[in-house]
Design a protein around this nucleic acid. Structure first.
Length: 477
RNA sequence: GGCGCCGUGGCGGAGAGGCUACGCAGCGGAUUGCAAAUCCGUGUACUCCAGUUCGAAUCUGGACGGCGCCUCCA
């Protein structure tokens, strides 16, 4: 049974049939590095990392390209406003992005091309489009002539004549544009802006051209999967297709679009009035989110549902998610911190009691069916119950299946089940070991007043003590 | 207004023409000195109205509601 993927272009699921057998080329539009990453920036990397992990588990060689947009009007505006150089700004936010990827265990990306590294290739590409009559030079730059493109609008379901008619009601065309639907490939430089040389004067590339060019140079003209957030369908992806096809490739065979991260039922945009409140704003900053809730919880939240549905990032949601993940972590137990990944083939070959095997089967079927991580994770809970009852094989299976989509990484437990005395060999760990030993003595003497006093006071201090058969454990509340 | 996505139990969230999703919370029980954790049990869920069908939450049409996008400049 081949992997099924929902293709935005055809609006249906279809079997994934790579252009070159055994290999998958995948491109994900990356961030424009001009400001702090927010929670929404994490969705794509985490989701498509799980996708790439699964494709690899299924035996495909995946080349996964995720660009960095380091030339852009917003970057220039930011530089002009703050007085920093645009290079410092992009370097800073690129580093932040990479740091987040590392923390979230996004490990499958093979290439991070930057726009600044591909300007000559973009110039060549634009020159090709001008030469073939698909682009023209206007007063302030070079534009792609959309009316020359058969099938324009096929991805987003828009009709060119309607769009142009609507736009033209708004006013006459500026800068020598032939149509309001045309978009910039090259923007001629204005004073004080960074620029690169071109046959049409110094300037910088337009937004859409970068992805077409960088995908061409990493994956080839025709590649397998182009991924991105739903909000990029139009105009960005539509224009990428136009450029790619005009340049002479089939462009992406499959378009995957993930839905957006929402807050209490709605997307929070930068213009939202609440964003003026720094505390409100802070809770969407990716770094603050990852530090506040833990990378494992964030990753779990983003994968818990289906990627074509919105994810609601509300505090009450996160709490429930954290509890749920904690349950899985506890079931995985000490296997959580053990390194190593098992290959899917090896996992599938294991002998297992019927119930565990059924969960394994369903997990695999869910992932094969358009990467349904939510349904796959549901099976992990079934395995967790079996593991908690003493199923050793199920416990290992639980961990190994989870790891196939990037869950259960060493150290993840600290985000849900806080460190125990055994796991913390620092000063606090030693002190706690002593305290628990004394408390255990009191309990052995049936001096419950003392043992409860210790537990209550520790709780006030932010430490929860839990008695188990084989001794007490503690964690930070 | 145009295009697209979606409306599932208290909440989150899969699935899907007849078969327990799952999780969180709640309730009952086991275990525990008491808690925690764990285990067992526990929910007349599918926005509304028509239609197709032996049978629809699942398909079709309509209504209502939510969300996203609607190009340089933003």
């Amino acid at each position: 049974m081949p992997i099924q993927v929902y293709n935005t272009l055809t609006r249906q699921k279809q079997p994934l049939t790579p252009v070159q057998a055994g290999q998958v080329g995948m491109y994900l539009c990356g961030p424009t590095v001009y400001d702090d990453c927010h929670i929404g920036h994490l969705m794509g990397p985490v989701l498509y990392d799980a996708v790439a992990r699964w494709l690899r588990a299924r035996g495909l060689a995946v080349r996964f390209v995720n660009n960095i947009t380091d030339i852009d009007d917003k970057i220039i505006a930011r530089a002009q406003a703050s007085g920093e150089s645009w290079q410092d700004i992009t370097a800073h936010y690129t580093a932040q992005y990479f740091d987040l990827l590392r923390r979230l265990h996004v490990v499958t990306i093979t290439d991070h091309p930057r726009c600044t590294g591909h300007v000559p290739q973009m110039v060549d590409y634009i020159a090709d489009l001008v030469r073939s009559g698909r682009a023209y030079v206007a007063e302030d730059g070079v534009y792609y002539e959309v009316s020359q493109q058969p099938g324009y609008g096929k991805l987003s379901g828009r009709r060119l004549d309607e769009m142009v008619a609507d736009a033209e009601k708004e006013g006459k065309l500026a800068h020598g544009l032939r149509s309001r639907a045309d978009f910039a490939l090259w923007k001629r430089v204005k004073p004080g802006e960074p620029s690169w040389p071109s046959p049409w004067g110094d300037g910088r590339p337009g937004w859409h051209i970068e992805c077409s060019v960088m995908s061409l140079h990493t994956l080839g003209a025709t590649f397998d999967i182009h991924a991105g957030g739903e909000e990029l369908k139009f105009p960005h992806h539509e224009n990428e297709i136009a450029q790619g096809e005009a340049h002479g490739g089939g462009y992406a065979q499959v378009w995957m679009h993930n839905n957006l991260v929402q807050f209490e039922g709605a997307k929070v945009s930068k213009s939202d009035p609440r964003m003026r409140d720094p505390a409100f704003r802070r809770q969407f900053q990716a770094l603050a989110v990852v530090e506040g809730h833990g990378a494992a919880v964030v990753r779990f939240l983003l994968l818990n549902g289906h990627y074509r549905r919105p994810v609601d990032f509300a505090p009450s949601n996160i709490g429930a998610i954290r509890t749920a993940l904690g349950r899985l972590h506890r079931a995985v137990g000490d296997l959580l911190d053990a390194p190593g990944d098992a290959a899917l083939d090896e996992i599938l070959a294991r002998q297992l009691p019927a119930e565990g095997a059924r969960h394994r089967e369903r997990f695999v079927a869910a992932m094969d069916d358009d990467f349904n991580t939510g349904a796959a994770i549901a099976e992990l809970f079934g395995l967790a119950a079996l593991a908690a009852k003493g199923g050793t094989a199920e416990r290992l299976l639980l961990r190994d299946l989870g790891r196939l989509i990037g869950l259960f990484q060493p150290g993840d437990g600290k985000d849900t089940v806080a460190p125990t005395a055994a796991a913390d060999d620092g000063t606090l760990g030693k002190v706690m070991a002593l305290v628990l030993e004394l408390r255990q003595k009191a309990r052995a003497d049936r001096d419950f007043a003392t043992s409860d006093l210790i537990r209550d006071r520790l709780k006030e201090a932010g430490i929860a003590v839990k008695d188990a058969k084989d001794g007490a454990t503690w964690e930070r509340a």
